[in-house]
Each structure stands twice: as C-alpha cells, then as structure tokens.
C-alpha cells in the first residue's frame, strides 16, 4: 500500500488549481449571461460622483516601504527560527537545552536590538514625527 510518496501534496496542488481556475471560469460563464453594454461614463474610475481628476500616481510616502522592510527582516528571522524552535524540545529532553537556549536568545536579542534602534530613531512612528518635524513638507500623502 505504499502510496506514491508525493501524494501528500496532491490536495495542495488541487486546491491552488481550483483557486486559480475558479475566477476565469466563472467570469467566462457570466460573460454569456450578463448584460454587457459598456458606456463611456461607466468606464471611468469612481470619484464619489465628480469627474476623476488627474492620474492616480501621486508618489506615496516612504513609510510604506519602512513597514515592508521591517516585515521582511522579521519574516526571514522567523523562517530561520522555525526549525530551531521545533527541535528545542528534543534537545531539552536530551539535556542540551541550555546550549540551544543560549543560541536562540543571542539570535533574538540581536534582532530586538535592531527593532529598538528603529523605534528610537523614529522609523516606527507613522504620522506624528513627520508632520511635526517638517511643517514645510506638504507631501501629497500626509494622512
């Protein structure tokens, strides 16, 4: 009864395939049924009633990138931590728990120092420090 060893991933592939195929298929079926009379007015972007003004490419503020940056650093950190953390109990029962504990703590404290640095230097503040600091900087995006 040795199933093919990779069968364990079959539902994953099936589900992702269904997720990807469901959208085009439903839209195609809908296209046959649905009324389709595109009109110039309907095609314009929604602007609470007024005519849309200018393109949408106002340059955004840098904060969005800082959030993504900190996210990816901590994401990679957790990716590295998962196998070590999963193995901790085994080593703990073997009596080598102290060694692993120290390794994990060093790994974590280095990165907590990074977060603390960003916090203190004001990278995590969202609005306050920018609007306060540079009143002159009108910035399209100051929400």
């Amino acid at each position: 009864m040795a199933l093919d060893l990779l069968n364990i991933y079959m539902p994953v592939v099936l589900l992702l395939a269904i997720g990807v195929l469901a959208v085009p298929i439903t839209l195609l079926i809908g296209r046959l049924i649905r009324p389709a009379n595109p009109s110039q007015l309907k095609e314009t972007a929604y602007e609470c009633g007024e005519m849309p003004v200018g393109g949408a490419w106002s340059s955004f503020n840098i904060r969005f990138y800082v959030v993504g940056l900190i996210f990816i650093i901590f994401d990679v950190e957790s990716a590295l931590m998962f196998p070590v953390v999963a193995v901790f109990n085994k080593f703990n029962s073997l009596g080598m728990g102290g060694l692993i504990l120290v390794e994990i703590l060093i790994f974590l404290l280095v990165l907590i120092a990074g977060l603390a640095y960003c916090w203190r230097r004001g990278d995590l503040d969202w609005v306050k420090s920018y609007s306060a600091a540079n009143r002159s900087d009108s910035g399209v995006e100051n929400e």
């Binding site: 950190e77 060093i106 120092a113 960003c118």
Partner: peptide, 16 residues
C-alpha cells in the same frame, strides 16, 4: 545561524 542574525541586523539598520 548566529552570523545571519547579525547580517539581518545590518540590513535592517542600513536600509532604515
């Protein structure tokens, strides 16, 4: 493993 955490710290601080 430990050096990669220092690398990540460097990347975080530098990019920030």
């Amino acid at each position: 493993f430990e050096i990669s955490s220092v690398l990540l710290l460097g990347a975080l601080v530098g990019a920030a």
